[in-house]
């Protein structure tokens, strides 16, 4: 692994410290593929031309209700209102739109998501593909044409790739892309210049966060092999309902908040079930993400529904 040194001479050790403790309210700025953190509100270098902004919403779990938890609908409405206020160019939703893959839950989610007043690019979570391999999900939210639901698009010179790793899970519960999708990804990326910034988004993490809970993707390695030659690769996912970052050379990984309920830290407690928190704490653990691109740099701002 190459030594990671930030633009301000921040060494790898210090960068990793930020990574470990970074979370809500920290902005990650990319400089030549290497992130540095800024406090929220602190501006990126002055004089830079504004690029474009997109948003990420994840794990809305419409239909989820447990214990004293309020409606996942209400918290999504809150999140969507906050996202609309950011006026992003478009929004990505990194899966688990619904809780139980029902047509009604998809319809409710789609109605609420219209509140962002922008195009939304979806990929499914494993809660969206129960029993029908995502048929209902793709009918409503699908963008992949002639594929198993995966697709790509370009925006302002950045290449976006929406990947599906939940339709067939492995027997150990990890995500799986499958050879057909990996072949498609290789072909999709082959003729692009290495200087094209890439954003790949999918539901389950593409790095092994806690495989015992299925928090990883079995065949992420060949996907990363196709992505690694690009100078700036940003991988966005949901699934674990908390913000964690990881850097591997030019590839950075970012998990996202849920808008519905929090989950425990990796491996903490008996299982990955919804974290029970006092009602007044809940919104401090749910949130949305804003991403600002300036040239080939992207900065991420995670804000909670309590901010």
């Amino acid at each position: 692994m190459s030594k990671v040194v930030g633009p301000n001479g921040v060494g790898r050790r210090q960068a990793m410290k930020h990574l470990l403790w970074g979370g809500a309210g920290v902005v990650w700025t990319f400089a030549g593929g290497v992130p540095r953190s800024l406090r929220v509100g602190e501006e990126a270098e002055a004089g830079e031309m504004r690029g474009f902004t997109f948003g990420q919403i994840s794990d809305s779990h419409i239909g989820f209700k447990a214990g004293a938890h309020p409606s996942a609908q209400d918290t999504l409405v809150d999140a969507v209102g906050r996202m609309a206020a950011l006026k992003p160019d478009f929004v990505i939703h990194t899966g688990d739109v619904s809780h139980l893959s029902t047509a009604g839950q998809f319809a409710t989610a789609a109605d609420i998501m219209q509140g962002v007043k922008r195009d939304v690019y979806y990929v499914p979570g494993e809660h969206d593909t129960i029993g029908d391999e995502g048929k209902l999900f793709f009918q409503r939210f699908g963008r992949g044409r002639g594929t198993g639901g995966w697709y790509s698009f370009d925006a302002h010179g950045v290449h976006f790739v929406g990947l599906v790793n939940v339709v067939k899970l492995t027997q150990t519960g990890l995500g799986w892309f499958g050879p057909e999708q990996l072949k498609w990804l290789g072909e999709d990326l082959r003729h692009r210049s290495a200087s094209t910034p890439i954003v790949a988004f999918t539901h389950m993490p593409m790095w092994s966060i806690y495989p015992q809970w299925g928090w990883g993707t079995e065949d992420a390695a060949p996907a990363l092999a196709a992505l690694r030659r690009f100078g700036s690769v940003t991988i966005l996912n949901g699934h674990i309902h908390q913000v964690i970052q990881k850097v591997e050379g030019n590839v950075t990984y970012h998990t996202a908040y849920s808008t519905a309920f929090p989950q425990p830290s990796p491996g903490v407690g008996p299982g990955p079930g919804p974290l029970q928190v006092p009602a007044d704490k809940l919104k401090t653990l749910l949130g949305i993400r804003r991403l600002d691109f300036v040239a080939d740099r992207v900065s991420l701002t995670d804000t909670t529904l309590a901010d």
Binding site: H127, L169, T172, G173, Q212, G214
Partner: peptide
């Protein structure tokens, strides 16, 4: 198994 959590 549970198809949502196939490690079950």
């Amino acid at each position: 198994i549970c198809s949502v959590h196939p490690y079950m």
